[in-house]
Design a binder for these strands. Structure first.
Length: 270
DNA sequence: CGCCAGGACGCCC
DNA sequence: GGGCGTCATGGC
């Protein structure tokens, strides 16, 4: 990856990156595609920092941000410090993963906020992606366009959250908010715990089971060995990996999972 | 209309 | 410890 400053923009060259594949592959729910003269443009936020980013034929434009903000925030968010060519080379020793990596070459694992991830993936359970986005949108709209803090959400009740139309998940959102706000569940500490201990801590929240805990670890804490298994990954495992996953992916199994999920959901079943 | 969705929980054995 | 019904809501 390399970049330079031009006017008020940061211009990035990175071949292992595609906005559609990265921002709309079920790992994040709050990026919006907007009309532009570029190949595509998205606008979104990390915590309270807003970004508009475009993809052209040969580069990416991070609009209207300083070099410092780019390096301090977005470089990390988009995981530009990791060489995805190297990862894909390792994954592609396996036949199915080779196809998945070739199918969507530009997927990257975003380094998202753990709190937002926790609530987002609680909402995701037994739900579909368009509706997950809608619920999160209604939630953020209610807080001036920002994702509410644990402190703010801990004031709510399942009844007061009725406007979300999140169904049975509302009481899970409340339990998570209260436990995080009180410190009973400490996301910062959990992020550096041994994996099994971290899972146990996250599952103290009502509504957080194996799958949601794994998603929080992977997407919100960048624990790349975490491996969420949803209905699509269950299909991949049953169809292509009856004897389990290859050992050589284990350190970054979660990233491999992201290619497999997208491949199965949009290519194989289409 | 019926089936399904980036599941978790409670209850049963 | 594994199997099964239930839980809201709405996308398709």
């Amino acid at each position: 990856m390399d970049y330079y400053v031009k006017n008020n923009n940061i211009i990035v060259h990175e071949k292992d990156f595609d906005l559609d594949e990265t921002l709309d592959c079920g790992q994040a729910f709050r990026w919006k595609k907007i009309d532009s003269d570029y190949k595509c443009t998205y606008t979104g936020k990390f915590i309270n920092d807003e970004l508009t980013v475009s993809q052209t034929e040969d580069c990416f434009i991070f609009h209207n941000i300083s070099e410092k903000d780019f390096l301090d925030k977005w470089f990390e968010y988009f995981d530009f410090g990791t060489d995805y060519s190297e990862l894909k080379k390792i994954f592609s020793q396996d036949e199915t993963l080779a196809k998945a990596c070739k199918y969507a070459k530009g997927i990257r694992l975003l380094k998202q906020d753990s709190w937002e991830c926790l609530i987002s993936f609680i909402i995701s359970q037994n739900n579909n992606i368009p509706r997950i986005k809608g619920i999160i949108q209604r939630l953020c709209d209610n807080y001036g366009g920002n994702f509410p803090t644990a402190q703010a959400l801990s004031q709510e009740s399942p009844e007061s959250l009725a406007y979300l139309r999140s169904g049975f998940r509302a009481r899970y959102i409340c339990d998570a908010s209260q436990k995080v706000n009180s410190g009973e569940v400490n996301l910062t500490k959990i992020s550096s715990m041994p994996l099994e201990q971290a899972r146990t801590e996250l599952k103290k929240i009502t509504g957080v089971g194996d799958k949601v805990a794994e998603c929080v670890l992977l997407y919100g804490m960048h624990r790349t060995e975490a491996f969420p298994v949803d209905v699509w990954i269950k299909r991949v495992l049953a169809e292509y990996y009856p004897n389990g996953l290859p050992e050589y992916i284990s350190a970054d199994a979660g990233i491999a999972q992201q290619y497999l999920f997208h491949y199965m959901r949009t290519a194989v079943s289409a």
